[in-house]
Structures are given as structure tokens and as C-alpha cells.
């Protein structure tokens, strides 16, 4: 951990435009929850929260998008703007650069998801008395955010096209391929997050049933975070200054 890297990254991430941009995304579940609440016809509120709002809208779309934006920004934008060379030539170990940046990406994603998940969940479930669905899934989202952040930080070290690769992973692999070939679900951060959410929220199986077991999900999450972080550090250690910066 390096405090200076941490605070600099925090400032970079908390830019006005990016915050506004993410804020717009984060409003979507809230607006949707309000719309379903006010204009919904025959809505089973618990079912809608456990089948639609959390697994599809928040965990399926918003979590990976927010993590992608922050995860590729913390380190990737330094490469894009050419400031990486000043950072990487400082006499500090590469893990002291990657770890604070990963934590900032996780914090930023986590805060956004915590806000939108709890507000949208409260709107969707108000009056039903079963807030555990909202609470459990929101905590699972924050845990999943660490895995996504680690993956996208690693991608931003590996390729300058991290955004497209990340979007392809989220919407082609997790969105399409895992639906067609169910065996690939063990390699999907979305499925890990859903399994954790299922466990923490204690939803009855009629409402929501995750595809993976809790143990599998925990092992998967630890493996993704560990491997991605290790690989990002290892790649950065082999990084060399070139004429292009």
C-alpha cells in the first residue's frame, strides 16, 4: 500500500465528468424501481426484486459497467495519457502501485453500487417487510465489485483495448455464452456474485436459485481476485519504458 498513490488515484477517479457519467448509470435502477412501483400492473414486489432488479439490472449490467469504467481508469488512463512512466519509474515496488489502485477502483465501484442497490432495493421492497433481499444482494454486489475490479485492472495492464475486451467478457461471455453452455458458468463473476447474493439474502428457492454453490462461488471469487492481481503485478514488473511512453 502506498498512501500517495492511493490519494492521487482517488483524485483522478473522482473527476467531475466521470462522477456525473456514473451517476447517470446509477440512477437507472432507482428510476426503474420507482416506475415499477408507481405504474406497475400486478407486480409481486419480492419476486421482481429477487428475479429482475438485483440479478438482471444491478448485478447483470450496472455492476460490471461501473467496475469496468473505474477498473480500466485507475491504471489504464495513466498509460493512455502517458503519465504511467512517471509513476512506474519511482523506486517503489509494483505491488505498491497496483494494490492501492485496485482498492480505489473497488471503493469507487462499491460506493456507487451500495448507494444505487440500497435505494432501489428500498423503493422496490418498501412495505413488504423483507429487506433482507435488498441487503443480501447489495452486499454481494460489493463483494463482486472486487473481483470485477481486479479483472479489469489486469486487463488494462495487458491491452490498450481493455474496454472492448471487458465489454466482450461481460456481455458476450457472461451474457450469452454462459446461457448457452451451462458448464461455463463456473468461469463467470456474475454467477459467483449471484451465488453469494443468494446465500446472504436467504431468498427462498422459489424466488431465486443461484446456479453455483456458495463454496464454489467463494473459491471462484478468491481465485479471480488473487490471480488477476498477481498477474497484473507480474506484468507490470516486466514492463519496460519505450519511446512511446
Amino acid at each position: 500500500m502506498n498512501r500517495v498513490v492511493f490519494s492521487i488515484t482517488l483524485q483522478q477517479v473522482a473527476g467531475k465528468r466521470r462522477t456525473l457519467f456514473i451517476g447517470l448509470f446509477a440512477l437507472i435502477p432507482v428510476v426503474l424501481a420507482v416506475l415499477v412501483r408507481t405504474a406497475g400492473a400486478n407486480v409481486e414486489h419480492e419476486q421482481w426484486a429477487a428475479e429482475g432488479l438485483f440479478p438482471v439490472v444491478i448485478i447483470g449490467a450496472l455492476l460490471p459497467l461501473a467496475a469496468l469504467i473505474f477498473g480500466t481508469a485507475v491504471l489504464g488512463s495513466e498509460f493512455e495519457e502517458g503519465t504511467a512512466v512517471y509513476l512506474l519509474t519511482k523506486p517503489i515496488p509494483r505491488r505498491a502501485i497496483v494494490l492501492p489502485k485496485l482498492i480505489v477502483a473497488w471503493l469507487a465501484t462499491g460506493v456507487v453500487l451500495l448507494l444505487t442497490g440500497s435505494i432501489a432495493g428500498m423503493v422496490a421492497l418498501a412495505g413488504t417487510g423483507d429487506m433482507q433481499i435488498a441487503l443480501g444482494f447489495t452486499i454481494a454486489t460489493v463483494i463482486g465489485a472486487l473481483a470485477y475490479s481486479a479483472l479489469f485492472v489486469m486487463l488494462s495492464v495487458l491491452t490498450s483495448h481493455a474496454l472492448i475486451v471487458g465489454l466482450g467478457y461481460v456481455f458476450l461471455w457472461e451474457g450469452v455464452v454462459t446461457g448457452l453452455f451451462t458448464g461455463t458458468r463456473i468461469l463467470s463473476i456474475r454467477e459467483y456474485t449471484l451465488a453469494i447474493g443468494d446465500m446472504l439474502s436467504g431468498t427462498p428457492d422459489v424466488l431465486f436459485q443461484a446456479h453455483l454453490s456458495e463454496t464454489g462461488a467463494i473459491v471462484g471469487l478468491v481465485a479471480v481476485v488473487g490471480l488477476a492481481t498477481w498477474f497484473a503485478i507480474a506484468q507490470l514488473e516486466r514492463w519496460e519504458i519505450t519511446a512511446g511512453g
Binding site: L35, A41, A61, L65
Partner: peptide
């Protein structure tokens, strides 16, 4: 590039997810 790439995909994917839900759960006009 970062903003426009994510925005374009979000316009396609998020509206798809959200509109499917709105069409299912609310009245026809909405």
C-alpha cells in the same frame, strides 16, 4: 474513447434490459 465506448454499449444493452422489464411489468402504453 473510454466514455464513448461505454456509452454506446450502455445505450444498447441497458435500454434493452430496462425496457424488457418495463414492458413486462407496466401498462401497455408505458
Amino acid at each position: 474513447r473510454a466514455y464513448s465506448t461505454v456509452s454506446i454499449l450502455a445505450v444498447f444493452m441497458l435500454t434493452w434490459i430496462v425496457s424488457s422489464i418495463v414492458a413486462e411489468l407496466t401498462e401497455r402504453e408505458i
